[in-house]
Design a protein around this nucleic acid. Structure first.
Length: 416
RNA sequence: GUGGGUGUAGCUCAGUUGGUUAGAGCGCCAGAUUGUGAUUCUGGAUGUCGCGGGUUCAAAUCCCGUCACUCACCCCA
């Protein structure tokens, strides 16, 4: 591989044929489902003020402190390439673009995080996300999860699982942290040094640790909900009961935590076994974001398109299955026919038929090879002799048969 | 940011303890077939061996650096 100058920068990639067909399918299905659930699209800028993210995601979170691409303009104003979509979408809602009481919006687009790339992680990655704005209501959480399950099915993805938990109300946080510390403290010496530090700085993070020693200790710790208020517990119960009524299968996982500060109550993620270490293809949750002194509540999710694709591919679905339909190819022989065929080409395209032709005078053999390569099902052969007779030779590439037809019949055959 | 693996033709990859003209398959181009693809046969072209430096009579091969890809940690979609 001659690797250098004409490659995109690290962790970013060109998405082109044939892969792009799968991307288009995924986006198109998402738009269909979102429309059915009455969400409308918002396209916010990729660049936002830096404070938008530091304030909403939390200025001590990893995403904000070490993963954002930031820049300054000539006036010294600080901006960041969006690392996620919720902050921008909610900024839009707060700007008055939507009624904040019940805005329902979705977005599709690139996000940027300057991390070391690995399986399922790019520096420019793509998310399909959705936000249902409105006061906390467990039925809204369930509705959004139901939509997400519907979308997974519309993509034809099998084997995805939903893990769900609550992180409770902000008022519960102190009690949860205290409760966890008390439960873990007797076995603190069993934890590796790094985990012991985290015990002080962010106990919640210990819950989803991959370290075996930590897992062992965590297994003996009461679930986080046991430290929460009755209100938080009831909220989770209603979400679970509603999902059950909707026949949506979720696994309640007390160890699930989220890394962004804006989450309140319900959090969940969609995992798939075909993914490797980064096994979540989507993350979701209820949040409360303060923008310009205004508190906005909502529930939403973001799905990583690259990870959705990896999951689909793990189940045997490939991009070639979504390739565009086969074109018609026009073969010319002689200058006069070439010029006439150019008109035919344009006519066919205006009638809605995808077709292409060789624009230079080349041997029939070479043109046929090209026709075969582009996947043409039908080839129209028109040389100077057909031109004189006013006919077209229509060849079926699958069985090799061909027949002479006049224009009306040609159109008839190709439009069906 | 930390650690492991990998960079040889358009693609997938061989290349033996350093040894002279660096290979294969697929693809590509051409001919067999002077107006017919795919199949078959025959022939052909293509490499700064990722990049830079070093050791050596001699480096794709050994050493150092660097860049990229990849996997994992961290964290997340």
């Amino acid at each position: 591989m001659a690797s250098n100058s004409h490659q995109p920068i690290q962790g970013m990639s060109d998405i082109a044929f044939p892969d792009v067909a799968l991307w288009q399918f995924i986006e198109q299905r998402a738009r269909e489902i979102f429309a059915r659930y009455r969400f409308s699209e918002v396209r916010t800028p990729v660049l936002e003020k830096l404070e938008l993210f530091t304030h909403s995601l939390g200025d001590t979170t990893d995403v904000v402190t070490k993963e954002m691409y930031t820049l300054e303009d000539r006036g010294g104003r600080k901006f960041a390439l969006r690392p996620e979509g919720t902050a921008g979408a909610i900024r839009y809602v707060a700007s008055g673009g939507e009624e904040t009481a019940n805005a329902r919006i979705f977005y599709i687009g690139p996000m940027f995080r300057c991390e070391r790339p690995q399986a399922g992680r790019k520096r420019q990655f793509h998310q399909i996300g959705l936000e249902a704005v409105g006061a906390p209501n467990p039925l809204a959480d369930a509705e959004v999860i139901a939509l997400q399950v519907h979308l997974l099915a519309a993509w034809g993805l099998s084997g995805a699982k939903i893990r769900l938990n609550t992180i409770g109300l902000p008022e519960d946080r102190a009690a949860v942290v205290k409760g966890l510390r008390e439960a873990i403290r007797p076995r603190l010496h069993e934890l590796p040094e790094e985990a012991q530090q985290r015990f002080e700085t962010n106990v919640l993070r210990l819950l989803d640790s991959k370290d075996e020693a930590v897992k062992k200790v965590i297994a003996g710790v009461p679930p986080v909900i046991s430290f929460m208020s009755a209100e938080s517990r009831a909220y989770l119960e209603t979400v679970i009961a509603t999902l059950r009524r909707l026949e949506i299968d979720v696994e309640v996982d007390p160890s699930l935590v989220r890394g962004l500060d804006y989450y309140v109550h319900t959090v969940w993620e969609v995992v798939h076994s075909g993914l490797g270490a980064q096994n979540a293809l989507a993350g979701g949750g209820r949040y409360r974001i303060n923008i310009g002194g205004r508190e906005i509540d909502g529930v939403g999710f973001a799905m990583g398109v690259e990870r959705v694709i990896a999951s689909l591919e793990a189940t045997g679905i490939t991009a070639t299955q979504f390739a565009p339909p086969p074109p018609v190819f026009i073969v010319s022989l002689g200058e006069a026919a070439l010029n006439e065929n150019l008109l035919l080409l344009q006519t066919l395209r205006q009638r809605g038929i995808a077709c292409e032709m060789e624009l230079a005078e080349r041997k029939v053999q070479a043109q046929m090879r090209r026709a075969n390569k582009c996947g043409a099902q039908h080839v129209i052969i028109r040389g100077d002799s057909e031109l004189e007779k006013g006919i077209f030779v229509l060849k079926n590439m699958a069985d090799g048969t061909q027949r002479e037809v006049e224009l009306p019949e040609l159109m008839e055959l190709l439009t069906h």
